[in-house]
Simulated scan of single mutants.
Amino acid sequence: MKKSLLTLICFIAAISFAQAQLLPSFKLGIKGGLGFSNLRTEGKYFNSDTKTGFQLGLWGRIGVAGFHIQPEAYYASKKAGIKLTEGNESGDVTFKSLDVPLLLGTRIGLGPVGFRLQAGPVFSFAQKEKLTISNVTNFDDYKKTSTGIIGGIGADISKFTIDLRYEHGLSNLNANSSNDQKLKMWTVGVGIAIL
């Protein structure tokens, strides 16, 4: 009798857990973070140092059956240090953009505490650029849109989130094909769910 009762309780718990995993969930929140980026070029046109920028925006998450899709939209300021390989001229470059990642992921955990794995494309729409040295490149040659791939890990504690991600630019930022340039960036972000 005890074995039958224990089996029935385990069976009911398993069904309840499975149904909870199949119910769709929705979250909406705000986020901010720091980005550590550099600008890579093919050949030896210039060298790039890592500089710190920031991100600020919104995120949403729609999940079902242990998987989720997480679209985001945030304003980003990405910076890099530039030093020409010929001559001693150096300075900073800043890209300001509206970034829209579309992340696919899974969450591992129970209740309000969990860990996430996420990856997906990121689309950037340039807002403004700034360059402190004139002969690295001409900003009129920079494209207004670019694409990259982003991936990382995250943790949820109740309504709070924290993320560590790596973004790798896929698009050549410079319209001049002889000077292929791509951004690479690590980001650390924090957020809070408001819904």
Rank of each mutant, 00 (worst) to 15 (best):
G169L: 10
L28G: 04
V136Q: 11
T132G: 08
S158V: 10
A20W: 08
I150E: 12
I62T: 08
T187G: 08
D163Y: 08
I194E: 06
D156P: 02
R40A: 04
G43L: 14
K3E: 13
F160T: 11
T94L: 10
K27W: 04
T41N: 09
G148H: 02
R40V: 12
G189W: 06
F139K: 15
I157F: 15
L28A: 02
K159R: 15
N176T: 05
S37Y: 07
K96H: 07
S158K: 10
T106M: 13
L22D: 00
G81L: 06
T132R: 06
K130H: 08
A193G: 08
E167M: 11
E89A: 15
L5D: 09
I30V: 00
P101R: 11
L58G: 06
G43Y: 01
K83W: 04
T137Y: 14
K2A: 05
G57Q: 13
A76W: 07
S37M: 08
K78I: 12
P24E: 12
S146W: 10
K184D: 12
L23M: 09
D141K: 13
V188I: 15
K96F: 05
D156V: 05
L34K: 05
G35M: 09
E167G: 12
L56C: 11
G120H: 09
S25M: 04
P24G: 01
G111T: 10
A13W: 05
S146H: 05
L28K: 03
L164R: 11
T137P: 01
L183Q: 02
I9P: 01
G148T: 07
L39M: 02
F26E: 03
K3R: 13
Q118S: 06
